[in-house]
Design a protein around this nucleic acid. Structure first.
Lengths: 337, 337
DNA sequence: TGTTGGCACTCATATCGAAAGAGTGCTAAC
DNA sequence: GTTAGCACTCTTTCGATATGAGTGCCAACA
């Protein structure tokens, strides 16, 4: 559909805009990218491409800005290239590996690192936790009928929440219940043993059957509610970018960042099984039309880790992608130990 | 030192500036607050007060702005008044009480609520956790010599972190160790049993003495490192304020918010045993000279909860304080259940 | 002695017009 | 199909000017 030259022009305009932050004019493109064609030729092409939806002009006498269609073309084109990661990645990997305090600590740190390295907002998410094996279940009586449920997933991720039971159980009873549940559940993901638990565990618990059942129901709620866990870091860095000098834009992003569930859903929705996914502007949602989302599944935690960046449309996609890929590949060791 | 009228002028200027965000001129003060004195008189007084360090002028032909000395005077004066809380507090209290998922969830929610209600950044902190009774200790073997330590404090606050032991212990051994530690520690705060643990628990563990000792050392590190826990919420709201339209100022605050430890230290340092404390601008630190910090210890969690607000110098102190006081008083029930 | 009205002065802000500059669209020639 | 040339548009910048808020000070007044 696009001629070779048109394609080149689109890519050049996107590239130029990413580099400079200024609308790209025909003269610049001719001089820096397509030396063979004169500005006038470029102008003609640009007018066509604008009609085709690749560019727009902030005002008549300005250069062209890429639309999300153009970004899409650009991103698709660089996805085919192999990139080399910046030199600092080795240092970062080392720093990550030295974090020994557990999954939360590592992913929190990684999200901050990603943010800092790219001037975007770094995101690290664990998803599909219902597919991760359960390692341990504990109930701790907090007083009255309130019970703290502790669930440790393989790899050391800890879920916990308070639940209310219909009647009080002693700590011994709770331990007994936890033991029964553990016997069935440990070594399996919740998704797999969920139904079995409801059917079998409750044997021999006639007297407190209702209460134990309620405990299971609430456990299920916990594990479904928190079927993902999210870490966000480095939000302050996007303020370094000229794109977010406008307070309004930033506020949109910031309020999204505080809605953990919405963010987790977004990450889950746009990540793909393998490799980097880039979602651009309107492709995400109306509110996020000024932002892009770059996601990559990481090798850590049984491939249920997703790393990502939220940044401006004109983020440096090549750099972002290469950093994400490099860190993502490396995460496994750190998360298992 | 200050005459009655001078005091009135200082308070009026602060009040006027808080309300309008504009420098207050002599004419305005005369008309709105001191009808008995002419602008000229006010001007004379203002010149004196400027010399005394209560005011400054952004430029010669502007009105006066309060210095932090003036804010201090203002805040001290309103601290003596009884305030009535806004009508919405009842609704908020109810919402808080309905949160049943545990301490973390409640405090996270409270911090967001505080932020939203005041257009400041809401903070909720648990401090001095070494003084809270330990309710349960568990070790979970994660593989290799990595062990997950789970510590439940009274009220259901969960601490957890991975530790590395010098040699591998079986899960049974770990359970045994946890039982021994629990026997001594449960029902007491860590600060009290810390030394006893090192001395007595290790009896009969000759063969793995080193390893168990290391476990204790690392537990100690965990409990000291996390002797406070912090929840921050509603950061986006301060962008509604004209004071933070300037990106630079906001970035300072935002980067502080991402440094959990620094923030926790700050909260701990400036809160007082009882009642509201207000720390203003330079009184906090050089970087925070554009902000005020309002803190109040809450009744929840054995008086180890601190609620707070971080906002601009010209925040509505009366409203902030009244909201903080009201919510703080009410927290107990929610945190215990 | 403290208070007040008057007035000159300062300085930020708003407004206007002119000039500069970037970039386009179109046309005519190659 | 490509290019040079040119008129045109629109933003941005700059300086000059006017406006207005607010001060500082002085002289008069109670």
């Amino acid at each position: 559909m696009l001629t070779e030259r048109q394609l080149e022009i689109v890519l050049s305009v996107v590239y130029e805009y990413i580099q400079t932050g200024e609308p790209a004019g025909s003269r610049t493109i001719s001089k820096k990218y397509l030396r063979g064609s004169s500005p006038a030729t470029i102008r003609n092409e640009m007018a066509d491409l604008e009609e085709m939806g690749y560019f727009y002009q902030p005002h008549t006498s300005a250069g062209r800005l890429p639309t999300s269609t153009a970004y899409r073309l650009y991103v698709d084109s660089i996805m085919q290239r192999r990139r080399s990661a910046p030199a600092e990645t080795e240092k970062w990997k080392k720093e990550i590996r030295e974090r020994r305090q557990g999954v939360d600590s590592i992913l929190g740190y990684v999200s901050q690192l990603l943010g800092k390295a790219t001037n975007c907002v770094g995101v690290a998410a664990l998803s599909a936790l219902e597919e991760v094996q359960i390692q341990r279940v504990n109930f701790v009586r907090l007083g009255g009928s309130t019970v703290l449920v502790l669930i440790v997933l393989e790899g050391g991720l800890v879920h916990h929440a308070n639940i209310q039971l219909p009647c009080e159980l002693s700590q011994d009873m709770l331990d007994e219940l936890a033991r029964k549940i553990s016997a069935v559940a440990c070594g399996h993901p919740w998704g797999q043993v969920r139904d079995a638990l409801f059917t079998y565990v409750l044997d021999g618990l006639e007297r407190v059957w209702d209460t134990c059942r309620e405990a299971l129901v609430q456990m299920d709620a916990i594990l479904n509610r928190r079927s993902s866990r999210l870490f966000v870091g480095g939000a302050q860095h996007i303020l370094n970018l000229p794109d977010f000098q406008d307070i309004g834009k930033f506020q949109t992003v910031l309020s999204l960042l505080e809605q953990e569930q919405a963010l987790a859903d977004m990450v889950e929705r746009y990540s793909i099984k393998q490799g980097v996914s880039v979602t651009i502007g309107e492709e995400i949602s109306e509110e996020m039309k000024e932002c892009s989302l770059v996601l990559v599944p990481a090798s850590g935690y049984g491939r249920r880790t997703i790393l990502g960046l939220i940044g401006p449309l004109r983020m440096d996609y090549e750099k972002s992608i290469s950093i994400l890929e490099t860190i993502a590949e490396d995460l496994d060791d750190s998360l298992v130990n």
